[in-house]
Nucleic acid binder design. Sequence first.
DNA 1: TTTGGGCAAATCGTATGCAATCTTAGCGTT
DNA 2: AACGCTAAGATTGCATACGATTTGCCCAAA
Lengths: 244, 244
Amino acid sequence: MAMNISEKINLTETTPEDRSPEDRSMAIRESLRNAIIDRRLAPGTKLSESEVGSLFDVSRTVARAALQMLAFEGLVKTERNRGAFVSNPSPEEARQIFASRRLIEPGIVAAAVERITPEDIAEFRRQLGEEERYMNERGPAARRAEIKASGDFHLMLASVAGNVILQRFMDELVARSSLVIALYGRSGVSSCGHSEHTAVLDALEKGDGERAAKLMIHHIDHIEADLDLQVKQGLGLKDALSLA
Amino acid sequence: MAMNISEKINLTETTPEDRSPEDRSMAIRESLRNAIIDRRLAPGTKLSESEVGSLFDVSRTVARAALQMLAFEGLVKTERNRGAFVSNPSPEEARQIFASRRLIEPGIVAAAVERITPEDIAEFRRQLGEEERYMNERGPAARRAEIKASGDFHLMLASVAGNVILQRFMDELVARSSLVIALYGRSGVSSCGHSEHTAVLDALEKGDGERAAKLMIHHIDHIEADLDLQVKQGLGLKDALSLA
DNA sequence: TTTGGGCAAATCGTATGCAATCTTAGCGTT
DNA sequence: AACGCTAAGATTGCATACGATTTGCCCAAA
């Protein structure tokens, strides 16, 4: 099980202007975060400080800071004297994540309908085009990109809503949702997801916040309905298995 | 301005069973957190790594970890190569905090009404008694305790709701609200706040979630209405001033 | 008196070393 | 052959050391 994680992580994904000379731990966090939500790093994967450190050419101190941040947002779990692991959310956690989204996202939609500009709409259409493109491709890479793009739709919405606190909450919820889908997802989430995104956007464009919010709730319901949250209930064996 | 912060922090407030032999940074975070939401540490106060470290008899490493956590939940702001400071939320941030609460807390109430037990109710009544007691006392200490108790009501509600993710969001929102009230509060928040808490609890006891949620929204509106979010708008000077 | 430059103190950012803890492999016993 | 025990290896927790950056002071020059 001494599989190296190096090939799973894209070390040069920082964009030029993102290249602020500061906070390398932030960049590492971002890189690991992307790897996790892209499902290149599976739940349960161990992220040792020294390994992460040497991968990014920093000391354990910096790597540790990045892992702490990820632990704070629930993407990794740290066990004392054992290390950090990509989170393995339980079905109960999954339910709570979606319950939270059902609560927050309609509010975000309601805020977004007040502030969205034609430029935003155009940007959304571009994004939805991306989504569709990946949807029609085959292969695991396209599948990952599709899931990422699907999440980005929700994050763009939060950004348009203009509440940075809710935006941060959504960052966390979308990232953790991605983990949950990786673990419990049954089918391609997006065949339904994509059309629902366009429906929400259409309602927003017409200024119909009520309808957009309703559509968003249904959308979240559909995502959660595609999950299989029953099986792993009683065992706990699976936990140990994926942690090993 | 070289005032020592040591007298502002209660170093021995960890309860015996909280004395897990691990994660001292967590204990430090908790201690600082309480000091901030109790307003013993004013917004803008500098929290240097070495000072915090020596106060709690740990190295800068663990002090730094505690400050990072606080920065993550928005209670302190760190500036590169300058240090960490107790956050100084802007009026805009304040509005976003309360907007978020208006969105989340009705949902928490709705979840709580389904799960609340008679034991919970009794516990709430005890808590409200505390609140009233502090309300009738005079002096800054009682005032602080009153604000703390008022926030605890909301946190207990989140706990009863049974969604740990929302609970964590509320932890953050209530803590930051305390900062906002410290900065922009006009009067005693609680003379109205207390009775509103009891009203919410009464509705919950009767199982009337609709009414409880409405009452909660009004309650949040009242808290925000008590703030003076206008004055500091145009300047930006004040910001620099309070950071110095 | 005021302004500008430069030096010194303080603080942060990061690397590294040591002790403590956990895991695992090997060995002996039943 | 299975089980338990011990010791070595690996990994984290934490402290400390050193370089980098910023701040504030002081003094000189206009």
